[in-house]
Computed example of a mutant assay.
Amino acid sequence: MSSEQRHEHIETVVVGGGQAGLATGYHLARSGRPFVILETGGRIGDCWRERWDSLRLFSPARFDGLPGLPYPGDDWSFPTRDEFADYLQAYAAWAELPVRTGVRVRRLSYDGTRYVVETDGESTYTADNVVVAAGYDRLPKVPDFAAELDPDVRQLHAVSYRGPRQLADGTVLVVGAGNSGADIALELSASRRVLLSGPHPGQIPWRIERRVSWALTPVLFFLFRHVLTVRTPMGRKLRPRVLAHSAPLIRVKSGDLKAAGVERVARTAGVRDGRLELADGTRPEVANVLWCTGFRPDVSWIDLDVFDADGEPVQRRGVVEGRPGLYFVGRLFQYAMASSMIQGVGRDAEFVVRHLAGRTGRAPVAARAAGSRKPSARGAGTGVSPG
Rank of each mutant, 00 (worst) to 15 (best):
F84G: 00
C292A: 14
F222Y: 15
S254Q: 11
D46C: 04
R210N: 14
G281N: 12
G25E: 03
E8N: 11
R331Q: 14
G17F: 01
V314H: 10
A147S: 13
L167G: 02
V194T: 00
L55S: 01
T282E: 08
A61S: 12
A309F: 10
G387F: 00
D303C: 00
H7A: 14
V384Q: 04
G163L: 04
G42H: 12
V130T: 10
E4W: 00
L326S: 03
V271Q: 10
V174H: 05
R193A: 09
V175P: 05
L228A: 11
L88H: 01
V175S: 07
R62H: 11
N179A: 13
R100K: 12
R354E: 10
S31H: 14
L290Q: 01
V103T: 06
L276N: 07
F58T: 01
T113G: 13
V116S: 00
S189L: 06
A168H: 14
Y335D: 13
Y91W: 02
D82H: 11
L304Q: 10
Q19L: 09
G281K: 05
E96A: 15
E277F: 10
R106S: 11
P364G: 09
P67E: 01
A215K: 13
S340N: 09
G311N: 10
Y110V: 04
R272S: 14
D183E: 14
A366K: 07
R296N: 14
G178N: 03
D303Q: 03
V252L: 06
R138Q: 15
G379T: 04
P218C: 08
W214C: 00
V159F: 08
P60I: 02
S77F: 01
A146R: 03
R104G: 11
G387L: 00
L66A: 05
V99H: 00
R251Y: 07
V319Q: 12
G25S: 06
D308W: 04
V314W: 11
L278Q: 06
R114M: 08
L326A: 07
F351I: 13
V116I: 11
G294N: 01
A134Y: 12
Q155V: 05
H200E: 11
L22T: 02
Y161F: 10
A247K: 08
